[in-house]
């Protein structure tokens, strides 16, 4: 509802402006701190600047514009290549395993399970914890010196070996394991909500039509979970790209660079090595990847709601 903007008394006119006035601080913050900063980081990625605050003592700029060189350099770095490869492995496994476990658990929980009220929170609580906390738990639990390997040894299987977290070839899978543990319950909740939203009378009709449970799920229920699949994918993909804390807590990117991801790469190049330009360009790549997933998703979500 819009109230007239012209030719009315001052209080009414103020009322007309108030909504926008109230919204403006938030909008200003978002445009400065998010979009302004994004532009700034993009700008930095075109410079050879190495340290903050980018200006010399007399105020002269301490950097040169070097175009896309940072991006060229970035994609020649083996370090970045490892981070990207790891990202591919991590994101792929993480999304697939989370989706499979989430859907599987949701379907099982949807069978009128006694004690669902107890089980559901148990599956979901990891989402409430900090990645640093769960990273710590997994770090020591998987540590060959005191964790699983050592436990199995004391149980009598002396030759058992499980040193993935310390093994360059397998460390990334331990990150996948911990990340799946943390978020699969959440995916379960998303699918469960989707399942509970399906019209029960339709399922009864399908059963009267003679559909077996298997066919019921394969032909009728799972196809109707499309929105849940889409949401799960978008959320998981963006979480995967942003994964940072968990790696820091579990392996700090190691052993060597075996668990380096773009997020940790950016951090170490920017703050560890003072390579602002390279760090910024890697951040820009991360943003573009997320935007490629989120922008169409948000666009369709907001359009539908109109």
């Amino acid at each position: 509802m819009t109230i007239a903007q012209s030719g009315m008394d001052s209080r009414t006119r103020l009322q007309g402006w108030l909504p926008k006035l109230v919204l403006s601080p938030s909008v200003a913050m978002v445009f400065v701190f998010v979009y302004g900063f994004i532009l700034f980081t993009v700008y930095v990625s075109f410079t050879d600047s190495r340290i903050l605050p980018f200006v010399g003592k007399s105020g002269e700029p301490a950097f040169d514009l070097i175009g896309l060189s940072n991006y060229q350099k970035l994609f020649k770095l083996s370090h970045w290549e490892i981070a990207l490869t790891n990202m591919g492995v991590f994101a792929g496994l993480y999304i697939i395993i989370c989706t499979v476990i989430g859907l599987f658990l949701a379907i099982l929980l949807d069978q009128k399970i006694r004690g669902e009220g107890v089980l559901r929170p148990l599956y979901l609580y990891p989402m409430a914890l900090s990645f640093i906390v769960t990273g710590t738990a997994w770090k020591w639990f998987l540590d060959p010196g005191i964790g699983v390997e050592s436990i199995i040894h004391t149980w009598g299987w002396e030759s058992f070996s499980f040193d993935w977290i310390k093994n360059r070839d397998f460390a990334i899978y331990t990150i996948v394991m911990a990340a799946v543990w943390q978020t699969s319950g959440f995916v379960m909740a998303m699918f469960l909500a989707g399942l509970r939203g399906i019209d029960n009378e339709m399922l009864k009709a399908a059963q009267i039509d003679g559909a077996s449970n298997w066919n019921l799920y394969r032909r009728i229920i799972i196809p109707q979970l499309r929105p849940a699949f889409l949401s799960a994918f978008v959320i998981l993909a963006h979480l995967a790209i942003k994964t940072f804390d968990l790696v820091i807590a579990m392996t700090s990117g190691g052993p060597g660079r075996a668990t380096e991801l773009p997020a940790t790469f950016m951090y170490s190049y920017t703050f560890g090595r003072n390579q602002m330009g390279i760090g910024s360009s890697s951040a820009v790549i991360m943003l573009m990847t997320i935007a490629a997933i989120m922008v169409p998703y948000l666009y369709s979500e907001l359009r539908e709601r109109k």
């Binding site: 790209i241 951090y267 948000l298 907001l302 709601r305």
Partner: peptide, 29 residues
């Protein structure tokens, strides 16, 4: 509601999903 409010909201919403690496440097400054 006003013209363009959904777009504005879209901008606010997208801000939730950015990788924070993209704002670390200017934010520090």
């Amino acid at each position: 509601r006003f013209k363009g409010d959904t777009l504005l909201f879209g901008f606010m919403l997208f801000a939730c999903f950015i990788p924070f690496q993209i704002v670390l440097i200017p934010m520090a400054m």
